[in-house]
Every structure is written in C-alpha cells, then in structure tokens.
Nucleic acid binder design. Structure first.
Length: 816
RNA sequence: GCGGAUGUGGUGAAAUUGGUAUACACGCCAGACUUAGGAUCUGGUGCCGCAAGGCGUGGAGGUUCAAGUCCUCUCAUCCGCACCA
C-alpha cells in the first residue's frame, strides 16, 4: 500500500477528536506536565513561525503522554487588538466577525497539523466570559492600589491613534506599525509595575537554568536598577529671587557620588518643572523660549545626535564646597529618569565632558589613576584616587562612594537612593477592540469602579470604525451609564485595555476546570496542580514585553491570594525565526510559504518533520524546498519499509548473541536513537539530532533482514517518532502493534555490548591508521598492533610516549 | 559605545563536553531499473595533488601526548540596550 498522507492524516485527526485523546485527566495524583506555546493572534492564517512553535510544544506534549504523565497542552487566541480594527477600516468588516472567522479558520489549520490540544479548554480573550473575569481582576488591582489614573507625557502613535507603553516603543517607533512615536500629554491608566521592580529583578535568579540567559539579561537591563546618591542643589539668593521665590532647590541623582567635588555645572531637562515655570512666567527671552520648545519637540532619535544646551542665568550652591555653580538646560537630560536634573562632572563623565567642551565650561579633576596621570582630551571614568575632595582625598574612588553617601546622610543633605529604568505600565488604549476598562466618571463621585455584578462591561456590536477618534467615545449610547455609587447619570470610561493584559494571565485561565469554566476564572485546585508551566515556548520578541508583564501579573495574583508561587514559567524555550532566502518570511518581501500548501502537497507529518529536522529549535531555520522533499521521502520510506515488520502485541524478544554483525549493529542504532530520544525530549530539545539518529537506525535496519530486528526496531522508532510525525507513526503502530508501542520504552544494555572495537591510531596526534581489538585487549597488545599498522611512520624515529585512551584511540609520540 | 550570541564542506547542520572533525540530510557526480524520469534503488562526494602525501572548524598565538572544544589577542556577522546621570 502506498503512503497517502491525506488519508492517514484525516483518519487519525478524526480518531483523536472522537476519542477526546488529548484531554488531561482530573486525577491530580498523577505526575503532570504543563506544555504551552505562546498563543497566537488570529491574524487570518497560520504562518511557518506558528507551525514551528506548535510542532515543538506538540512534540513535548506527546512524548510526556507516552511516558504516562498527565499533560495539559492547551490552545487559545489572543484575539483583541488593533489589526481587527484596521481590517475593519480597510474592508468595512466588523472586528468581531473578522476575528472569530479567523479563529475558526486557524483552528482548522491547527487540527490539520495534528496538534494535540485539549479542545475543552479552547478560548479566545475577546470572549465576553474572559472579559468578565479580567475586569474583575482589574477592579481587584485598583482596590489594592496597583492601578491608577494620571495625566502624563505619553508615547503616542499617530498611525494607530493610541498611546503605547514604554516597552512597546522600539527605537523610537511603534512596535506594531513602525511609525515614529511622539509625546502627548493625556490621561492614562497605569499598572504599578514599579512596585514590583525589585522582586521582578531578584526573582530572575530563580529562573536561571530554566530561561535563556539572554532573556534574563534583557529583563535585567530593562528594569535598570541603579544605586546612588540623591541630594538637593539650592539656588543662591539672587536666583531664588529671580524665580519669584517659587523654587528653593531641585533634586539630582548620581551613581558616582565619588565625583561630587568635581561638579562644575548642573543641567535640567527641557521638560523640567522649573523650566516650564520660567517659560510661563516670562523669565526667559523669546529666542530662548523658541529654542527650548524646539528641543522639546525634537524626536528622541534626533535629540541624540548632538548635545546642546542653554544657560538659564541661575546658580546653585555646591553642597560641600559652597561654590557657585551655573544651571543649564541640556538636551541629553531625560525628564523621565531620576528627577530630570543632573549634577555634571565633566572631568569624569563622557557626556558631561562633551557638553563642557562645547560650551567651554570648567572641567575640575577629582580622581586620578593610581599610577599617576590620566589621558588628556577625555573624561577619566575609571576607578582611581581622590584628590581635590576635601577630607576624602587619597581614598580609592570606588570605596569612597559609601563614605560620601554616609557623609551626606549624616549632614542630612542627601541620601542613598535607588533608581529604575522601569516605568509604570500604561495600559489604556484609545481604541475599540479591547477589554473595556470597568470605570465610571461621575460628576459628584469622581472616578468610580463598576460593580462586579454588572460585569462584563461588553463592547457594543453596532459600532462605526472609521479610524478617527475613539469608537466607544463616538458611540451614541454606550458610554452613558449610572454611577455605581450614587446612581446618578454618569459616563463610562471609553478607553480599552492594552491587549498585553489578556496575555498576562491566559496561562492561568487554562487552569479552569472545564466543568466550572463559566463561574470561575480558574480553579485554585487546578492552579495548584498544573502551574507553573513546565515548558513555555515562544519567540524572543516577547523577552521584555509579554514575559515581564506575565511575571508581574503572577506576583500580583499571588498578593491578591489567588495563587501561591512567584514565577509562572519554569522553563522557557525561545525558538528561532523561520527564514526564506536569508530573511524573515513576510508578506511585504513576498517570501512566505503557506503551511496549507505544504500540508496539501506533502502532508502535516512532512511539515512537522522538516521543521524539527532542519535546525535546532533555538536557532534560525532556513526554509528549503528540497529539504522538505527530503523529509517527505524519509516518511515514505519509513512507511514503505514497515512492510518488513511482523505484527506483534509486545516487543519481540531477541537473543542478541545469536545475531549477525549487521543485525547487532541495527539493534545498537535503534537503541542509540532511543537513548537520544529521552535526552532530547527531557533536556536538550535538539530534535534535529534525534531525527538524524532515527534515520541512521533506519539505514542500519535496512542493511539486514531479520524480521524480529525489523519489528523491534519499528516498535521503538515509531514510538519515539510519534511526537514528531504522529499520523504515520500511529498508522504503523495500529497496523502492526495495536498501538501498544506508544509508551515508555525500556533500554536494553545488552545491545551496546561490543565484541570488538575499533581504535584510531595517531602519530603525534595525527590519525594514521585504525585497528580492531577485543574489548578487553591488553594495553601492551594494543600498542604492539598499533605499531605494526603504523610502522611506516615509525621508521628512524624515537618513540617518546605511548598513550592508550580506552575505547577511543592510541597516540604514539615520536621524535626525530 | 555597552551587553549577549554565532562563525565548521557547495548548503542546513553533527561531534557522547579535551580523544578517529564533517554524523544525518540537501545538493552534486556515477551507475542500475525504465519508452521516459523532476520516480525509485545502489555507490561516491572536505580541499589541494597523477600519486606519495599535504592542508583543513573566521584569523594569529598559547596550553596539551591530543584542541572545533580550554586560554590570550583579533576579525566578521547577527541580536538586544543605547545620552539611564
């Protein structure tokens, strides 16, 4: 019978569906595995990145099921978000219809690839039920003080017409559409992720070993913790008077308190409150105001090109020396880090140095290298010896930091301070297709929460999406409601949630009990059993975004009493991108390969095999059409050669000693593949080498003709390949083994016992010959034999040393 | 600039962690079967050389009996962060 992927794959997909083959057991005494791929956005069709992602998780899931574990391998859709609205604007479609049509289509694609998902736990985050639970959590978080509303300077994407969180601005541009982001002053809801900054940072240690180092580093950098000294710089009397006595001082932060005696000027961000006050109260000339405004409206990218500044005509007093120091505005001072003001030490900071050179400001040295002189023409930023630093002269600059901070604290003029790069997470979006934020604006009561019993606050279906303004705000009736406190007419919040909120807890939602899904977001009992996720698989692009938010939510949910662990994902595998012709597959480049076409032409098993064979999962994968055909050929051979099997209900017993050399070799190769399978599925994840091992075993089986060896070989190979090519493996397994082989396989040590072994013989480390010896051959005999074989290279040489590495090689060292 | 990763045949990639470099596959070459082959099967295939032999894991050194693997320096590519005070 010829291999027919369509027939076989349909048969098994129907079988799995009818038999609920992949529903996890409710027996919580069993050992569990929670295998999860990052869920997809329902963009319309699957792409190869999805196929790769789920082929990896499916291989894990199926392997662990074979091992007798209770496996949760769920699927859902991250179905809120801008593309649904953009499609609506473009095609005049309804975002909801568009989204759910896509979900249906993609679900079919998933099942046509044979992925072993729990169907009972399927969900989409735009489901009203999901919205209901999420809104309840939002209210909980507000009550805990973890959500607040504030006016601020925000990242605004002019294309998507919405604000973005800091994490969502990549190189000054919108993460989704690449439009340069501008600053806009508006109201916004924030999650207080900064409250968890230290814990998010410290707990990265718990993830070491389970997460790629790179991701841990990226999160560490993003949180950006730095310790230092904060102190006030006081204006002198005339400056104080100039500012109408409104400002006595401003606050600066430094990580280099050791350089404090070298401060020769100080700089404010152009957005600083003092600058704003001076502009508003006409304390600056018109030309200067124009210059400041220009500085403020320059994009962050342009602002980085060259340092520029403006003297404000104000002076502050150095807190230790009492000297007068000029105050400048500088474009390189960031308003949203620290206090938006810096002390400048040009002698020991590159930026301050550049600025001082440009404006000819004083450069005061206070640290010198231990061995004498510093290089001219640049700042000396290394550790050294303090001088010009009062009572700290002669100290090691690094060590003096502690003392100087202590000195400031004793004199009560400054204190030890920690700063973070991480900002609170701005979560409101001025768009329609998202979770409505469950708040109400009441004239009398102010901002109040919706009552939990009124949830969900669902989106209206009859909405006009034009791309202009906020559709919920423009809707004629939706926003009108009653105040949840006083009952008077009030206005609903029309902003919706950032969709990263939904993906911050979906992995918990999969821990709902299927019987109770309507009533609870997740079951405490199931959470306790299933979490954390044993293998989480997804793209590196979420290293800071989703993965940071999800960690934050987990800690919040813990503090809300919903769960009792700190980290959601025990092990993270970041898969590489799928490339074609050297670059990432994308519609705009026209280098995409449609999974549906591959399934149609070769079948799902071929697609899965190729994708796992062509590269290890963490590396980039170059798509290669003839490589796909090669994978298809292997599957055909695998299927065709199964005719050598003699059907059996259990693994054949074989008398190893009586076999021929080829037969023994074939068995060895089969069991080597089995050993490798355990290794790969449990820790190494290099499916490519497992597949190669299977191919070697197949080649070795084919070089012999013992039907018991064939049957045993297939018993094992079909079992270890089932996670990768499940349809054809099940077909073979059913036909010959009544599916009995799809379980944990026993490794027989006897097949690895060798009668004789081949040793390489090297002269001076250069391989010259090989010899075959008995396993227990004596060292003397091995050396004698090795010398015979290499006599040619030993002539007229003096043998200096003879090394025998057991079971590996012989090395003879000669001289002359 | 800072941090991280990677560099092995014509190509995708292996190498049990210091022990026979290039497994497995693609491609290519030859042969078999065939009316035919873009099907299937068999064999070959790191580079130079007629050969003996030599060279060979980005490059240069080093440690070692032995280095793709360890150390020092260096080059290239990719990724992340990027005036964070």
């Amino acid at each position: 019978m010829e291999y027919n992927s369509k027939e076989i794959e349909k048969k098994w997909q129907d079988y799995w569906k009818e038999n609920d083959s992949f529903e996890p057991s409710e027996d919580f005494t069993k050992e569990k595995k929670y295998i999860l791929s990052m869920f997809p956005f329902p963009s319309g069709r699957l792409h190869m990145g999805h196929v790769r992602n789920y082929s990896i998780s499916d291989a894990f899931a199926r392997f662990h099921r074979q091992q007798g574990k209770n496996v949760l391998h769920p699927i859902g859709f991250d179905s809120f978000g801008m593309p649904a609205e953009n499609a609506a604007i473009k095609n005049n479609a309804n975002p909801k219809t568009w989204t759910y049509d896509n979900i249906d289509y993609m679900k079919n694609e998933f099942y046509s690839l044979g992925f072993s998902f729990s169907r009972k736990r399927e969900m989409a985050t735009s489901d009203e039920l999901y919205t209901k639970f999420e809104q309840a959590f939002i209210i909980d978080m507000y009550e805990k003080g973890l959500l607040y509303r504030e006016k601020g300077l925000l990242n605004w994407c002019p294309h998507d017409q919405t604000v973005l969180a800091n994490e969502q601005v990549i190189d000054g541009c919108c993460w989704r559409c690449d439009t340069p982001v501008v600053k806009k002053d508006m109201n916004q809801y924030y999650f207080k992720i900064t409250k968890y900054a230290d814990e998010l940072l410290d707990d990265l240690k718990k993830l070491e070993g389970g997460w790629p180092k790179q991701v841990l580093t990226m999160q560490d950098n993003w949180i950006g913790k730095s310790n230092g000294l904060a102190f006030d710089l006081f204006f002198d009397e005339s400056s104080h008077a100039k500012l109408n006595e409104q400002f006595k001082s401003f606050d600066v932060f430094t990580t280099r308190p050791d350089t404090v005696y070298g401060v020769s000027y100080t700089a404010l961000a152009p957005e600083h409150a003092i600058v704003t006050y001076m502009i508003e109260n006409n304390l600056l000339s018109d030309e200067i105001i124009v210059e400041i405004k220009k500085m403020k409206t320059t994009s962050s990218i342009d602002r980085q090109k060259e340092k520029s500044g403006i003297p404000l005509g104000l002076n502050v007093i150095h807190p230790l020396t009492g000297k007068s120091i000029p105050v400048w505005i500088a474009n390189f001072v960031l308003m949203d880090y620290g206090s938006g003001a810096v002390m400048a030490v040009p002698a020991h900071d590159d930026r301050d140095f550049d600025f001082a050179k440009k404006y000819d400001l004083e450069i005061k040295l206070v640290i010198k290298p231990f061995d004498g002189k510093a290089e001219d023409g640049k700042a000396y930023t290394e550790v050294g010896e303090l001088f010009n630093s009062g009572e700290f002269d002669g100290m090691n600059s690094k060590k003096s930091q502690y003392n100087i901070i202590k000195y400031f604290e004793e004199k009560n003029i400054g204190k030890k301070t920690t700063n973070y790069k991480l900002k609170d997470w701005g979560v409101s979006r001025q768009r329609y297709w998202g979770t409505p934020i469950p708040f109400i604006h009441c004239e009398d009561c102010g901002l109040v929460m919706e009552k939990k019993e009124n949830l969900p606050i669902a989106l209206p279906d009859d909405v006009e999406i034009t791309g202009e303004g906020n559709p919920l705000d423009n809707h004629p009736t939706w926003k009108h409601c009653k105040c949840s406190v006083c009952g008077k007419d009030a206005i609903r919040e029309t902003d919706t949630m950032d969709t990263f909120v939904e993906s911050s807890w979906y992995f918990l939602r999969f821990c709902a009990s299927p019987e109770n899904m309507q009533d609870e977001a997740f079951s405490a009992e199931q959470i306790k059993y299933w979490m954390g996720v044993d293998n989480y698989i997804g793209g590196i692009e979420h290293a800071v975004l989703h993965l940071l938010y999800a960690r934050f939510f987990t800690k919040v949910f813990r503090d809300l009493g919903y769960l009792d662990f700190d980290e959601p994902f025990d092990n993270l595998l970041t898969q590489g991108m799928v490339l074609k012709d050297g670059s990432k597959m994308s519609k705009s480049k026209g280098n995409t390969v449609d999974p549906d076409e591959i399934i149609e032409k070769f079948g799902a098993d071929t697609a899965r095999l190729f994708i796992l064979f062509a590269a290890p999962p963490t590396q980039e994968l170059e798509w290669n059409d003839s490589g796909v055909e090669g994978s298809h050929k292997f599957i055909k051979r695998f299927f065709d050669r199964s005719s050598n099997i003699v059907a059996c209900e259990s693994i054949p017993k074989i008398a190893h000693a009586e076999l021929s050399k080829d037969e023994k070799f074939a068995r060895k190769k089969v069991y080597e593949a089995l050993v490798r399978a355990n290794d790969v599925y449990n820790e190494k994840f290099t499916f490519n080498t497992l597949i190669a091992g299977t191919m070697e075993a197949m080649n070795a089986l084919n070089a012999q003709s013992n039907s018991d060896v064939w049957s045993e070989g297939y018993w094992i190979l079909a079992s270890i390949m089932e996670p990768i090519i499940p349809h054809v493996a099940c077909e073979i397994s059913e036909k010959y083994f009544s599916l009995n082989n799809l379980t944990k396989q026993i490794i027989l040590d006897e097949v690895f016992v060798e009668d004789s072994i081949t040793l390489g013989v090297s002269i001076n480390g250069k391989r010259r010959a090989e010899i075959e010896v008995a396993v227990d051959e004596s060292k003397e005999n091995i050396i004698t034999l090795a010398k015979e074989k290499t006599a040619k290279w030993l002539e007229n040489k003096e043998i200096v040393k003879e090394i025998v590495v057991p079971k590996k090689l012989v090395n003879i060292v000669v001289k002359g």
